[in-house]
Write a protein that binds this DNA or RNA. Sequence first.
DNA 1: CATGGCTGTACAAGGTTTGTCCAACCCTGA
DNA 2: TCAGGGTTGGACAAACCTTGTACAGCCATG
Lengths: 296, 296
Amino acid sequence: MYTIKRAAEITGVPVATLRAWERRYAVVRPERTSGGYRLYDDRALADLVTMNALVEQGWTASQAADEVARRRMITDDTDPNAGLHRPPLPVAEPELVDEFIEAAKALDPAALAQTLDVAFSRGSIESVTTGWLLPTLAALGDAWVHGTVSIAGEHLASHAILRRLSTAYEAAGTPRTGPHIVVGLPEGSHHELGALAFATIARREGAVVLYLGANLPPQEWVTAVQLHEAEAAVIAVPSKGDVDAASRTARALAAAQPGLVIGIGGFEQEAVTGPGRKLGHDLVAAAHGLVDELAG
Amino acid sequence: MYTIKRAAEITGVPVATLRAWERRYAVVRPERTSGGYRLYDDRALADLVTMNALVEQGWTASQAADEVARRRMITDDTDPNAGLHRPPLPVAEPELVDEFIEAAKALDPAALAQTLDVAFSRGSIESVTTGWLLPTLAALGDAWVHGTVSIAGEHLASHAILRRLSTAYEAAGTPRTGPHIVVGLPEGSHHELGALAFATIARREGAVVLYLGANLPPQEWVTAVQLHEAEAAVIAVPSKGDVDAASRTARALAAAQPGLVIGIGGFEQEAVTGPGRKLGHDLVAAAHGLVDELAG
DNA sequence: CATGGCTGTACAAGGTTTGTCCAACCCTGA
DNA sequence: TCAGGGTTGGACAAACCTTGTACAGCCATG
């Protein structure tokens, strides 16, 4: 629960505007303390973010408020899991990506934390992954290749994201039943953020996930799949240098466990040869699809 | 059991504020001596740290207190070992270490999570670091060298710990003022858990920490120290293979920033040559000592 | 062009919250 | 006994929030 000042910082809407929107359009109705202070919850913040995005797209404030109310009605009425399966971000938000890259360039941990607060408050992990995380990882990769972000900046930013994803992964919990999946990166591969997001979303969809992290040799994948009695193994291929190791890993897994579903994800998944199904670049859909298929 | 002064030192919350929080929000109810002195246990300290972190994140004090109470309800209800009867972590708890190593051998994520829950609920990060984390890292390293834990098991266990430490690091928040410290691992070095624990404890002690993570080349250390205007840089040396890179990093830093305090930590710190102060193997004392020295 | 509604922002006057401080007094251990 | 530390309750200022009103820029309409 946030005060109006904090809500303004997170949503990017000035304090005076927040009050005007509430007074004129009742777009949100924050709770109040006994002293009368407004208290915004995450849901209210998400609505305000939507409203703000619509206004910046050119909607009038009153129309945007109606639209927010309409969307809220739909999610409230038709989807009992609202919040778990929120629609993806209505608009991509390049400013948030840029802001994050700038903070990485400047090695500014406070700015990174602030941007992450904003980004991760925009909705579920699923929508944040699609609307912010994947674009940001791509932009960070580009910036690193072009040398506009230092290695230190890339490390700093990656670890900050890693910590947020870790929290989300833990919060997802371990279901008692559900398909068993192993997720990780091949030998020599280190950019694990996409894989961790995949693992988190798969967990939320009901899978029992064994997350192995980066840099795992093929033989270890085989051991892990056998010990975990996994029905599927998902290999992330974030960069070109990981393609060979991923191919070797997939071959080793296919040879050792004929019935195993092998999924290949990541920016460079197309370059992988040999066994394994390409999961595509919509990470959220891929995770949902794989888990549903194994469960159903 | 700690007096109010010790509690203030440990949590970073001023004495007057501790009393105000208790009076106004009853966020903790420390026991009293016969003479009326407050006596804080580890559990109370943990709650205060949480409260403090929430306040630094922008929550109002009253809301933060409610949130702490809510979280306490949850843990008390779901964990039969929670509550006042839980003993603080003694000097060391070998069973918990062994249990964790066994879970790593078996690639059993549920057992790992369970053990981590117990270990991390035993008190502050500081006491968990000394009493459980460092012994466990040593045992995990041994088991890996002797091949009793697979690479997959080591990865799985390390990442599980990493996720808990990440949460603690985030919960520690960023103080507005305080000495600036850069923490990371030298080029080629990857076992970051000790470094992250150090960074977390330094943050809780009031330092503004730039945590750079693993595998950072010397020149990048220099850039980071300069951009962050750091007063100290702490290089972790977890294994023998990292000694040379650490020495090179220390030399590069000393050459570029003559006034910089260079700290060397980790299991293999003694083998490092050249500039830099060995921080010793009591990670908690080292972090407190360094931050206090820079601040005072 | 003038009108008028919509919208974001600014300001004033007053209430709330919170960290800190103080006075007066009590407890603890060397 | 004494120095250092702890106790309570009250008080205070700074920061923050409240409501109501006002106003300028913008845009569509008459």
